[in-house]
Write a protein that binds this DNA or RNA. Structure first.
Lengths: 340, 340
DNA sequence: CTGAAAGCGCTTACAG
DNA sequence: CTGAAAGCGCTTACAG
C-alpha cells in the first residue's frame, strides 16, 4: 500500500492551529484574516512535509473533479493525436487532468461515454460531435457543462467551437489545382452531414462552378473504412470516371486509401492524376511524389481550445462567453498538385 | 449548472429505508441480509431514476479513484497512440478511466508527472520508463502502487512488464536481410540504455557476427529528433560508410528520418540499399517501394497490459503477482528487404 | 433482517 | 485574527 498521506488535520494538529486556518492559507484566502507569522509558519511547514491536498475530498466538497475530457473521432488518427498531445500539456499546466476517448463517429457510443463522464463529474467537455448529435450537445450545454466543440459544429446551436475555415481552405486548394492545369477533378469525401464536410464540399462546388468545370463527387460511409470497403469504392469511382485528371481527398485517411488505389494501379501522380488532401500527414511528405495538402494549424487549434475551455471553467454560471473561433488553413504545396 | 444529482440519501428517504440498506444493495452485499422484496424495490427504483453513485465520494471513502494512467514516450507516435486507443476501450469496459501523458523520455518530466498522479490518487500506472529511471520505478513499486512497465523494463527490478522479444525479433529481421543478399548492413539506433534498444542491438550483433559480417552501428540521441539534427547525423553515417548496402532502423521514427535522407539523395531501395525497420507504420506500406518491418502485436500487448493491471488492482496488498510477459514480433516482408 | 453513526479530507458560513 | 462545526456522498463496523 502507498504510504499514508498527511492531511490538513495533521498539519493543524502539529502546528496547534485550526484546520480552518490551514485551509484559508492553502487557498490564499488568508490575506487580512490570518497573521503574517501564522501564514509563514503554515506555509513553511506545508512545503517541508510536501503536503498536497486530496483532490477527491476537494472535489467532493466543491463539486469539481479537475478533469477535462477530450472526445475525438479516433485518437489513433495523426491529426487528433497531435492535438491531444498538445492539449495534454496545456491541461497539466493549468491544473487539470485530460482524459480522452474515441467516438468513432457513433452517436450511441458517444452518448454512453458522455453519460459516464457526467456520472464521474467531469468538469469540461471538448468534443468532435458525430453526425446527428445536435440534441445531445444542446442538452449538455443547457445543463451548464463547460463545453467546446471542435473540428465541426452545429450552426443552429449557440455553443463555443473552434474550427478552421473549411470552405475557403478547400476553395483555395482547388483553385491551386485548377490553375495548375487540372480540369476534371474528383472530390472524395465522407457521406456525412458534419459541418466540416459540408463546408469542404461547398468549397469544391464553388471552385468547380466558378471555373465552369464538371462536378465529380464521391461520398463514402465512415464505417466502410473499418472493413476496407472504401478501397473498392474508390476503385469503382475511378472506373466510372475515366476522364478524371485530379483528385481532392477531404480527409487524410481518405487520401491514404486513395493513394493505395493509385499506387496499386500504377497511376502516376501528377502526370495522370493530380492529388491533394485535406490535413497534412507524415505519409504525404514521404510519398513519391510528395503530396500537397491543406494543413490545419494544430498548435493554434489546441491553444484556442484550451483558452475557451478555461474561460468557461472559471465563470461557472455565465454562458455569456460563447466563442466561435474560425482559424485559417495553410496551403502546403508539394509535388502532386501541378503539372510540370 | 448541471442538474442536481440524486444521492443515496434521497433514495433512502424516498423508499423509507436506511442508506445502509441502499448501499448494501448497490454493492451487491445484500445477499442473505436484506429481504428479497426490499432488494427488488431498491433496484427497481435505482434503475427508474437512473441513479449513479458519486465516484468522488466513493473514492474518498475507499481511497480509490478508478483512474489508470498510461505514460508513454510520445502519445502522438503511431505505435503508442494505437495501443492507447485499445487501452482506452478496455479501461472503460472495466470501469476505469484512462488518462495519458508523454514522458518524452525525460526523467525529470516523468518524475514530476508521477508525483502529480500520486497527489491525485491515481490507482494504477502503466509506464514506458525513460533511461535512468530505475530508482523511481522501484520506489513506486515499493510503495505498493499497481504498476506495469511496457515496451522496456529493468532486469534488476521485480516489476511486472510486457515487452516483445526484441533480441530474437531483430535477429530474425537481420537474418532475413542477410539471406536476401545484403552484406554490409548498418544498424541505426538510439543512444540509449533502455532494455528494448539494448536487446535490439544485441540481436543485430549476434546476426552480424554469426554470418561473419562487419558491424556498422549508429547511435542517435533522442533529443536530436526534436531539432531534426538526426537527419544530418544519418547523412554523415552514410558518407562515412559508402560501402553500406543495407540499413536496419531500430524504431519507426528513426526509419522515417532515414527514408527522408535516402529519398533526397535518390538512393534506390532495395537495389542500392536494402531497408527494414522495427515497428510497422502506415508510411511503410505507402512508400515506394514498400518497406519491410518487424511489427509488434499491438492487440496482444494491450490485452496483456490490461490483464496484468487488473490483476494488481484487484488484490491490492499482495505483490506476489509479478508477471513478465514477452510476446513475439511479426516479420512483415514487403519490397525493401531483398534483391530481385 | 435493518439502521444509526462514524469517518474519509476537505471548504466555508458563522460566531467570537 | 482564529476556531468549532456542518456538510459534500459515500462505506462499513457495530448494535439490535
Amino acid at each position: 500500500m502507498a504510504k499514508k498521506k498527511i492531511s490538513i488535520t495533521d498539519i493543524a494538529k502539529d502546528l496547534n492551529v485550526s484546520i480552518t486556518t490551514v485551509s484559508f492559507i492553502l487557498n490564499k484566502k488568508a490575506k487580512g484574516k490570518i497573521s503574517e507569522e501564522v501564514i509563514k509558519k503554515v506555509e513553511d511547514y506545508v512545503k517541508k512535509v510536501g503536503y498536497k491536498p486530496n483532490q477527491l475530498a476537494q472535489g467532493l466538497r466543491t463539486g469539481k473533479s479537475n478533469i477535462i475530457v477530450f472526445m475525438v473521432e479516433d485518437i489513433s488518427d495523426a491529426f487528433f493525436s497531435s492535438i491531444a498531445r498538445l492539449m495534454e500539456e496545456k491541461s497539466y499546466q493549468n491544473g487539470y487532468k485530460l482524459i480522452f476517448c474515441s467516438t468513432e463517429n457513433d452517436p450511441d457510443k458517444t452518448r454512453d461515454l458522455i453519460q459516464m463522464f457526467k456520472d464521474r463529474q467531469v468538469d469540461g467537455y471538448i468534443i468532435t460531435p458525430p453526425d446527428g448529435f445536435e440534441k445531445d450537445i444542446k442538452s449538455l450545454a443547457d445543463d451548464g457543462h463547460p463545453l467546446v466543440l471542435f473540428d465541426r459544429y452545429f450552426a443552429d446551436l449557440d455553443v463555443s467551437h473552434v474550427v478552421i475555415n473549411n470552405q475557403e481552405s478547400t476553395f483555395l486548394s482547388l483553385k491551386h489545382m485548377i490553375e495548375g492545369g487540372f480540369r476534371n477533378i474528383g472530390f472524395v469525401t465522407l457521406e456525412s452531414g458534419q459541418s466540416q464536410m459540408v463546408d469542404r464540399l461547398e468549397g469544391y462546388d464553388r471552385a468547380v462552378s466558378l471555373y465552369g468545370l464538371s462536378n465529380y463527387t464521391l461520398r463514402i460511409n465512415f464505417k466502410d473504412f473499418k472493413t476496407l470497403k472504401a478501397y473498392n469504392i474508390i476503385e469503382d469511382f475511378l472506373d466510372e470516371n475515366p476522364n478524371l485528371d485530379g483528385l481532392f481527398f477531404a480527409t487524410n485517411y481518405l487520401a491514404k486509401s486513395g493513394l493505395r488505389v493509385l499506387k496499386n494501379r500504377n497511376i502516376t501522380i501528377p502526370d495522370q492524376v493530380g492529388v491533394m488532401s485535406f490535413d497534412d500527414n507524415e505519409v504525404f511528405e514521404l510519398y513519391t511524389p510528395q503530396i500537397s495538402c491543406l494543413s490545419q494549424p494544430i498548435e493554434s487549434i489546441a491553444e484556442k481550445l484550451m483558452e475557451i475551455m478555461l474561460k468557461q471553467l472559471k465563470n461557472t454560471n455565465s454562458n455569456g462567453h460563447i466563442i466561435h473561433s474560425e482559424l485559417p488553413g495553410n496551403l502546403v504545396i508539394r509535388q502532386s498538385s501541378f503539372k510540370n
